[in-house]
Simulated scan of single mutants.
Amino acid sequence: MKALVIGATGATGKDLVKQLLNDKEFDEVDIFVRKPVDIQNDKLKVHVVNFDRPEDWKDMVKGDVVFSCLGTTLKAAGGKDAQKKVDYNYQYEFAKVAKENDVEDYILVSAYGANPTSKIFYSRMKGELEEAVKQLHFTKITIFKPGMLERKDSERTGEVLGSRIIKFANKLGLLESQKPLPTDILAKAMINSSKIKSNGYSSIKLGNIFCFAEKKV
C-alpha cells in the first residue's frame, strides 16, 4: 500500500511515519511537509510544499490511504484565524484533493469533544472539519477522537501539567477514563484501521481513552 501523510512532524505524525516505514504492508510512504525533514528511508518520499498553493502539489496526492494529523496550538499559531488555517483549511484542502485523485481511504485525527456547534473554539473547529470531510464521501473514512495525548518531549506547558495531574489522580484510582494516551498507541491504531475492510459505525477503545471511529461507505 501507499500511504500519504500530513502532520508528519508532529508527535503523532512522527510515531505514525516511523511505524509505517517499519510496516511490510506499506511499500511507499509520502509525507507532505512545510519544511525539510531529516529522515532517510528507501520507502519514504518527502514533499516540501506550500499548503496555500494546492495547484503546485495536487498531482502528487495519489495513493491508497491518507493519514491526516496536522495541527498546531493557538499559542504557536498566534491567533484563532492562523490556527484554523492549519487545523481546518489545510487539512480540508488536502482531503478534497485526495478525493479528487480517487484516494479511497481517509483517516483523520480529530479531538474528544469535537462538535460543530460547540461554544469552545477548538472543539467547534474540529467538529466543523469532521463534518466537512464527511461530505467528501470517501469510500472509507475513519475519524479518531482521542482525549489528552501523551507526547514525547512535549513543549505544551498546559498539556504537560494536565497530564501530570491526571497521572497522579490515576495512581489514586481516580479519572481512569481520562488516562493520557501515548501517541505511538494512537499511531498504531490508525495503521490498524487502514487494514480493516468494514462498513458502518464502530468505536475503538485504546487503553482507557475512547477513540470513536466512523467508517462510511
Rank of each mutant, 00 (worst) to 15 (best):
K80R: 13
Y90E: 04
S194G: 06
G173A: 11
P180G: 08
A169H: 07
Y88M: 04
F121K: 00
G147I: 05
D52K: 10
A114D: 01
A76F: 12
G113N: 03
V49F: 00
L181E: 12
M125S: 10
L181K: 10
G173T: 12
D87M: 01
P116A: 00
M148V: 08
P180D: 09
E104N: 12
T72H: 08
D59A: 13
F121V: 01
T72D: 09
M125A: 10
S193P: 05
G173C: 10
K152E: 13
I166W: 08
E100W: 01
V65T: 13
F51G: 02
K58R: 13
I165A: 14
G63T: 09
R164D: 14
D87R: 02
N101C: 03
D102Y: 12
V97Y: 02
E176R: 15
E159Y: 01
D64V: 00
V97N: 01
K188C: 06
P116N: 07
I191Y: 06
V66F: 11
D102K: 14
T72Q: 10
L172Y: 09
V48Y: 03
E128Q: 14
F94T: 05
L161I: 15
S68R: 11
Y106G: 01
L74H: 02
F138Q: 04
K167Y: 13
T142F: 08
I141E: 04
G71Q: 10
Y122E: 04
L70F: 07
G173V: 11
P182R: 09
E150W: 04
A95Q: 04
L175A: 14
K119N: 12
G127A: 04
K195M: 07
K96S: 11
V66E: 06
L186G: 05
S163V: 13
A76T: 15
K85L: 06
S163L: 12
V49G: 02
R124G: 06
L129K: 07
E131S: 14
R164W: 15
L74T: 03
P180A: 08
N89E: 15
Y106P: 03
L161A: 15
K119I: 07
D184W: 12
R53M: 11
A82W: 05
V66H: 04
E128C: 06
D153S: 08
K188N: 13
K167I: 07
A82V: 12
